[in-house]
């Protein structure tokens, strides 16, 4: 034993000190390489995300000249946000987001579960069909739905008229325009959510279901008791993303409802308010303040979600 260990020690004395140094240098090399490899991402993130955030914060405290040049105004841009107009656009955005998240995600979950049943024929076709709106340009979606919703000539009202119903001014009636637009929001995001949720469903081990079936659980019971709790991390992920995207809604509103529409005040989202202040009225400092408020809103709502998820997401 002794001899053996002595031998081993004697044999390895000089290599050991050598290898320690070598290990150290390999370690350092690895660390260095690690930094080099993440550098493009970190630099990109810094230059294109973090630095603009800092800059926007600075701009929000200034008054910007139309062609450059600025003066410090402190928090007065934020004080100017205390208007009914901004409050209304905040409400509009939250309303839209609530519908897109609380209707869109459950609908996507049910559809994903249905698309995951192996018995379904033309599964691939349905998946593709639901996914098409996701890869369609928002501009095309806006124009298409604008036409579908048209009061006099739209296909929706024509179908309703065929059944003897009167239809409505879907995107011009201030009381319903937001809902009509949110429906398009659900329609255009549901495909993406389905793909993510369906992937989550496929991860659920088949023997869970087999065991439940032996116990006599039907498809609905299994969906609620097994699938739903097993995919809760996926649902959390989808909900967070859907909410962030919905809070930033702009394009479909811009395309479907113009500023001459009677419903404009009741659908104008925060990002539109930002666009109008910054790019139409040339008040870029104020627009930056709007962007900062939206940023804080998104960050805090996401924070709240992370806090709530402890209560419902299974690990």
């Amino acid at each position: 034993m002794n001899t053996h260990s002595g031998l081993a020690a004697g044999r390895s004395r000089s290599p050991r000190s050598f290898s320690a140094r070598k290990v150290m240098s390999i370690r350092q090399g690895e660390i260095m390489w690690g930094y080099i490899l993440i550098a493009p991402t970190v630099i990109g993130l810094g230059v294109f995300y973090l630095w603009p955030v800092v800059q926007t914060l600075y701009i929000s405290m200034t008054k910007q000249g139309p062609f450059g040049g600025s003066s410090w105004v402190g928090i007065s841009n934020f004080e100017r946000l205390a208007t009914p107009e901004f409050g209304q656009s905040l409400l509009n955005t939250l309303g839209y987001t609530a519908i897109v998240v609380f209707l869109g995600v459950p609908v996507a979950t049910v559809l994903a579960a249905m698309l995951s049943t192996t018995k379904l024929r033309f599964r691939v076709f349905y998946r593709a069909a639901f996914f098409i709106p996701v890869i369609t340009l928002p501009a095309a979606i806006g124009v298409l739905w604008r036409w579908i919703y048209n009061t006099d000539y739209g296909i929706l009202n024509q179908i309703l008229r065929f059944f003897g119903l009167n239809g409505s001014s879907w995107i011009s009636d201030p009381n319903i325009a937001l809902y009509s637009i949110a429906m398009v929001g659900v329609w255009m995001t549901v495909g993406y959510n389905i793909v993510i949720i369906a992937a989550g469903i496929q991860e659920v081990p088949a023997w869970y279901h087999e065991a439940a079936m032996l116990d006599g659980a039907g498809a609905v019971r299994r969906f609620f008791s097994i699938t739903l709790s097993a995919i809760s991390p996926t649902l959390f992920f989808v909900t967070v993303l859907a909410m962030i995207k919905a809070l930033q809604v702009f394009d479909i509103v811009y395309l479907m409802v113009g500023d001459t529409s009677p419903a404009f005040d009741r659908v104008k989202p925060i990002v539109y308010y930002f666009y109008q202040s910054g790019f139409i009225e040339n008040d870029k400092g104020f627009a930056a303040a709007v962007a900062i408020v939206l940023f804080i809103l998104i960050a805090s709502l996401t924070g709240v979600q992370f806090w709530i998820q402890k209560k419902w997401v299974q690990r």
């Binding site: 009061t151 006099d152 001014s169 001459t260 529409s261």
Partner: peptide, 8 residues
């Protein structure tokens, strides 16, 4: 109406 002339 304004709703109609905005849409068409």
């Amino acid at each position: 109406s304004l709703a109609q002339t905005t849409e068409t």
